[in-house]
Design a binder for these strands. Structure first.
Length: 507
RNA sequence: GUCCCCAUCGUCUAGAGGCCUAGGACACCGGACUUUCACUUCGGCAACACGGGUUCGACUCCCGUUGGGGACGCCA
């Protein structure tokens, strides 16, 4: 049997280090068994998937040094490798489930489901779909289908019994079917959910080992049920522990830089990052901490992974990166790396127009722009804090900026400006009050080149990180405050969207 | 809240019942080297969550407690 494994990222944001982490272990497992490593794009979420992000995934994985045998950009015998191009396949498969009464159409509206959940929560009942449409007659189901009533297709999960899944690292894990509700397989837009698409594709692509993050453990019973419904052989399941924030929670961009692009922009070498990832929950038999991808693969043994989640420790990453810099490069080679990074005329020349009026001598350029070429900047709370506000309010303002920038897909000065303006109007304060502080947060200095252009040049992830650091220098924000602020922000955004929608309608 | 997973220094980890007075690495603290800094080097600090079993013997096996995390979406 040829080993075939895959990673299946969804293109809904900057490529995540967690994806690279899973990629590394899948790659190592495949290559150490002379198997194939597949890249599949899970873009079934039509509202969030973006082609630019897909491209970002390709680039980041290549940058870090991982290559795949089959994928959307490479082809292969089991394509297409982009789920949005496989809808017809899922339709066909779900028809057979419908036919065999393993699944059913559900016409419940979002409103009804929301009410149901509210009721369940209020009465402290188990949350999950209540099976309202489950026993609908075939005739009614067909009739409403012909009427083009919006609906989803749900998996028929048994009421009784239990599902035992075998995890290679954890042994048998037992789930009671009572705890599992009827999972949606096809959304009302006709696209499959992850659960359906992943099972169908893994089977059709002859995936032998499903190596993925621990967050998937609890949905594995649904997947097993699907394999059984189709009468397919199960792959082997291997759930790897998660990468963690310093506080022990799942690594998240709210608290930490998570995108591979951040590490690139911050000046880390791809092989050091990849090497560091290979240290997470894993140790080589010889205890070596610095190793190449080939070395990692050569004696890779998935049974050596330890089960506790690993905190992603920037300090140790920096130490490893430093070792690569001094041990693996001649000065000439290092210069090549530096110019591939930001010390090149393409990047540096962008500073010139924004600095021209500010230069007294040519030598003024670099000191003033140093923050654009730095991994981190030092924040002085005394100058960071807004003059007429306390540290906590200042932090709150900065956090709002983070929220405003979060969903930006296109990182350009004009759009950044527009989003900062939103922040100001949200707090009903002059934009100055925010920008003056933001200057310091982003640059670490009181005097800096134009803000929005600097942010554009720095890059989204670096900018985020600077602001996060600034917030923590200001003493951080409590969980409650953050939650409250985020709710208010979401509500305000919702309102402004409905207002602008109406405006469009009126026209 | 319910279900599931996990548990060795602050962090990453070694440890497959006696090899453990628990080893290594990062960070931190000292010393040496160095015009300075860095590198290097020597040393130090620092952990088996707790309670019960099993056993001649538990870091290691079993049970419980506690703690942490994850999942409970027409997101993946």
């Amino acid at each position: 049997m040829t080993v075939r494994v895959r990673i299946a990222p969804s293109p809904t944001g900057s490529p995540h280090v967690g994806t690279a982490y899973m990629g590394l272990f899948n790659y190592a497992f495949a290559k150490s068994h002379n198997g194939s490593f597949i890249l599949r794009i899970e873009d079934t979420d039509q509202t969030r998937s973006r082609p630019e992000y897909e491209d970002g995934i390709f680039k980041s994985l290549k940058w870090i040094g991982l290559s795949w045998d089959e994928g959307p950009d490479k082809g292969g015998d089991f394509g297409p490798y982009r789920q949005s191009e496989r809808t017809e396949i899922y339709q066909r498969h779900v028809e057979s489930l419908l036919h065999n009464h393993k699944a059913y159409r559900c016409f419940c509206t979002a409103e009804r489901l929301a009410e149901m959940r509210a009721y369940q929560r209020a009465n402290k009942l188990a949350e999950g779909y209540d099976g309202y449409c489950r026993d609908m007659g075939q005739e009614e189901s067909e009739r409403r289908l012909k009427n083009k009533e919006p609906h989803v297709v749900r998996l028929m999960v048994p009421d009784l019994g239990e599902c035992v899944m075998e995890d290679r690292l954890r042994g048998p894990i037992c789930y009671d079917f009572k705890q599992i509700d009827d999972q949606v397989l096809i959304k009302s837009d006709g696209f499959p959910t992850y659960h359906l698409a992943n099972v169908v594709d893994d089977h059709l692509m002859k995936v032998t080992h499903v190596i993925r993050g621990e967050e998937w453990v609890s949905s594995t019973p649904k997947h097993i049920l699907l394999y059984q419904a189709f009468d397919w052989t199960l792959p082997e399941f291997i759930h790897l522990p998660l990468l963690l924030n310093p506080d022990g929670s799942k690594l998240s961009k709210r608290k930490n830089p998570t995108s591979v692009e951040y590490y690139r922009d911050a000046g880390f070498l791809p092989e050091a990052l990849l090497n560091y990832l290979g240290l997470m929950s894993y140790s080589r038999p010889d205890q070596q901490e610095k190793f190449s991808l080939d070395q990692f693969v050569s004696d890779f043994n998935i049974d050596r992974v330890s089960l506790g989640g690993s905190i992603f420790d920037l300090q140790k990453l920096k130490w490893l990166n430093a070792r690569y810099i001094r041990e693996n490069y001649s000065p000439e080679q290092l210069w090549d790396q530096l110019s591939a990074w930001r010390l090149n005329s393409e990047y540096l020349s962008k500073m010139v127009p924004m600095m021209q009026n500010r230069l007294h001598t040519l030598g003024d350029l670099i000191p003033a722009c140093a923050f654009l070429l730095a991994t981190d900047v030092e924040h002085d709370p005394a100058i960071l804090q807004s003059k007429n506000r306390d540290a906590s309010t200042s932090a709150e303002l900065l956090h709002t900026v983070l929220l405003a920038l979060e969903d930006m897909e296109c990182w350009e000065a004009d759009l950044i400006k527009a989003n900062i303006e939103k922040t100001a109007s949200f707090h009903q304060i002059p934009i100055r009050e925010i920008t003056s502080m933001l200057f310091v947060a982003v640059s670490g200095m009181k005097v800096a080149p134009p803000l929005y252009q600097s942010m554009e040049l720095l890059g989204k992830d670096m900018t985020r990180r600077r602001i996060q650091n600034a917030i923590s220098v200001l003493g951080g924000l409590g969980k409650k405050k953050i939650k409250k602020l985020e709710e208010k922000w979401a509500a305000a955004r919702h309102n402004s969207e409905t207002i602008s929608d109406k405006a469009v309608d009126n026209e």
